Every structure is written in structure tokens, then in C-alpha cells.
Amino acid sequence: MKKYRNIAVYAIFAIVCVWMVGCGGCNPEPMPTDMSPTEGPEDGGTTVRITGEKFDMKNGVTVMFGGKEGQNATVPNKTEITVVTPAGTAGQSVEVVVTNKGKPDAPVPLSQKFTYTDATPPTVTSTDPADGTVFSEYEDSLNVLDSFTVTFSEPVEASSVSIEVAVTKTEDSMSEPTDAMLSGTVSGSDDSVTFTSDTPMRCGRMYTVTVSGATDMAGNALATAYSFSFSVTSPDPVYKYYVKEEDIQEANGEAALKYIAARPEIFDNPEKWERLVAANQEAADYIFDRTKLSVGQLLLIPRGRAWGDK
């Protein structure tokens, strides 16, 4: 009887040992070896496939990306996991750790890291001049500005930025714009670009700017077009004018007189240049030579009904 009892004890002991060894095999540590893809956008949502061995099909797995748990982790078989990445920080490469839920005290990191890429489009943060700016003080009414700057929330490719400038008259202007759009070139680096106009921006005009297409270094484009505007008030009419260097810089004679007549403080109309000739030829105190103006020369500016003004 004692003999059989000893045999039973040994048998039970053997069964327990086998069970313990077998149980250890039931809840092994995972053995992840590969991951694809290894990068995705910072806002998360990338489906990642992890391959390896001994993944827990019964209890499931937990996959951590830089300390944040991945979503919807599934184990279709013992050699494969699919999981959706959580949100992260652009530019960061984070450790990926797999844990079998049946053996929670044995997390295993992959040799590969997951890199979060930039998924945020740039935005316009400021403009110079700012939206709504009204220029009322300036030295030259026909050349108030020749450029403006747009600054973004991050570096952008200057060649990707499209800028359109619509030109309209201000309420105090005596003339309509010659061109409805202002042409120019866009240049810049880092997070700002500058629009340089082909012709100077003058007074008596409102400039409405539309910025679009700006793309950051990761290829994210400005989500919606950005618009802002600024204007330049017209000066009060003058009755005397001293010729400036820029008036005769390009040409003299009729061309210079047209340039002067086009000034908003004169007539705001180059076709009224002959009025300057007529008024100044009548002046008794000096001889007026319409073919040769000089810097600092005084011109009388005729106004009133006698000259056709209302």
C-alpha cells in the first residue's frame, strides 16, 4: 500500500512539474522583431504592423509608443500585431514597447523607433503692414511703399507662396486705379516672405492682399487663403509745387510734366499736364521753359472753375 502511495505522490509531483513548465509556455514574453511603417503624422492614426513571435492571442497585447498606449491593438496570429498610433510630437522618435497581457510584467521594446512627422499646416501669424493700416504720412505720394512682408507660424517654401494684390481707390482719391491688380515678386526665407511690387504703391489706393499656397518643409499647405488690406490716404491739394529729383529722373519736358500732373496733390491725372504749362507760362516773374525743368523749380498749380474744376 505504501508502495502505491509513493508512486501516486511521484506521479502528482511529475504532473505538477509538467504543468508548471507548460504554464510558463502559455504566457511567454513577446518577441517583436520588425515594425512597418516606422513613421507617421503627429496627430496619430497610423496603422502599424508588428511582426515577431509569441504574441498573446488569448489575452491580447498592449503596445506603447513613447509611453502612450496605441489604439485597437489586435493579434490575428502569434506572429503579427496591428495597432493604431496615438498622437505624438512632430520630429520625435519614440520607443515602441510590446507587452503580452498574460504576462504584464515582461514588456519588450523593439529595436526600431517610431518617428512622428509634421502634419500641421502653416498659418499666417502677422503682416507688415498690419491689416487695416492707414498710411497718412509719407514723403512721396507716388511711392509710398514698394513691398510688404507676411510671416508664418513656421518655415515655408518661398516658391510655394502665392500673393495677389487687388487695387481700389480710397474715398478721398480723385482717380481710379490704372490696373486692378498689382504685380510683383515673392521672395524670402525661413518663416517670412516679402512681396516686392513692380510699380510703387501710391496714395489714394487701398491694397487688398490674398495669400495662398504656402507649404511648409513637410509639404503641409496653408489650409485656407489669408487676406488683409491696407490703404494710403490722399494728400490735400497744393497750389505751389517744387520740382523733385524723382520728377525728372527718367525724363524731362512733357514726360516730367505728366509725371508731376499725375501726383495726387497736383491733379491726380497725367493728362492735365498742359494746364501746368499754361499757368506757368503766364507767370510774370520768370520765363518758364516747358522742355527743361530743374530740381527745386517752383510750379504754380492752377485750380478753380476757370480751369475746368467743378
Results as ranks from 00 to 15, higher is better:
residue 1 M to D: 12
residue 3 K to F: 10
residue 4 Y to E: 14
residue 6 N to R: 15
residue 8 A to T: 09
residue 9 V to D: 07
residue 12 I to R: 09
residue 17 C to W: 11
residue 19 W to S: 15
residue 22 G to K: 13
residue 29 E to K: 14
residue 32 P to K: 03
residue 34 D to A: 15
residue 37 P to R: 01
residue 40 G to R: 00
residue 42 E to K: 15
residue 42 E to Y: 08
residue 42 E to L: 09
residue 42 E to W: 05
residue 43 D to F: 15
residue 57 M to N: 04
residue 57 M to R: 12
residue 61 V to K: 00
residue 61 V to I: 10
residue 61 V to S: 07
residue 64 M to I: 08
residue 66 G to D: 05
residue 67 G to M: 02
residue 71 Q to E: 14
residue 73 A to L: 09
residue 73 A to R: 06
residue 76 P to Y: 01
residue 82 T to P: 02
residue 82 T to K: 08
residue 87 A to C: 12
residue 91 G to E: 02
residue 92 Q to M: 11
residue 93 S to M: 04
residue 93 S to Y: 08
residue 94 V to W: 03
residue 94 V to E: 01
residue 103 K to M: 14
residue 103 K to W: 13
residue 107 P to V: 08
residue 108 V to S: 04
residue 108 V to P: 05
residue 110 L to P: 11
residue 111 S to L: 15
residue 113 K to H: 12
residue 115 T to H: 08
residue 118 D to M: 02
residue 118 D to N: 15
residue 119 A to V: 03
residue 121 P to G: 06
residue 125 T to K: 13
residue 128 D to M: 13
residue 132 G to M: 11
residue 137 E to V: 15
residue 139 E to P: 04
residue 140 D to G: 04
residue 147 S to N: 13
residue 147 S to A: 13
residue 147 S to Q: 13
residue 149 T to S: 07
residue 159 S to K: 14
residue 163 I to Y: 01
residue 164 E to C: 04
residue 165 V to F: 00
residue 165 V to P: 00
residue 168 T to G: 08
residue 169 K to N: 10
residue 175 S to R: 06
residue 175 S to A: 12
residue 176 E to I: 02
residue 181 M to R: 12
residue 184 G to W: 02
residue 185 T to I: 14
residue 185 T to G: 11
residue 186 V to L: 00
residue 191 D to T: 09
residue 192 S to G: 09
residue 193 V to D: 06
residue 195 F to R: 08
residue 198 D to C: 07
residue 199 T to L: 11
residue 200 P to V: 05
residue 202 R to N: 12
residue 202 R to W: 10
residue 204 G to N: 01
residue 205 R to Y: 01
residue 207 Y to V: 05
residue 208 T to Y: 10
residue 211 V to C: 03
residue 212 S to L: 04
residue 213 G to W: 03
residue 218 A to D: 13
residue 218 A to M: 03
residue 223 A to W: 11
residue 227 S to M: 09
residue 228 F to P: 02
residue 233 T to E: 14
residue 235 P to Y: 03
residue 238 V to A: 05
residue 238 V to D: 09
residue 243 V to S: 02
residue 246 E to G: 11
residue 246 E to A: 12
residue 247 D to K: 01
residue 248 I to P: 00
residue 250 E to N: 10
residue 255 A to Y: 11
residue 260 I to P: 03
residue 262 A to G: 09
residue 263 R to A: 03
residue 264 P to A: 01
residue 269 N to C: 01
residue 272 K to S: 06
residue 274 E to T: 15
residue 276 L to V: 01
residue 277 V to L: 00
residue 280 N to L: 01
residue 290 R to Y: 07
residue 290 R to F: 05
residue 292 K to E: 13
residue 294 S to A: 15
residue 294 S to I: 15
residue 295 V to Q: 10
residue 298 L to K: 10
residue 303 R to N: 05
residue 304 G to D: 05
residue 305 R to S: 14
residue 307 W to K: 04
residue 308 G to I: 02
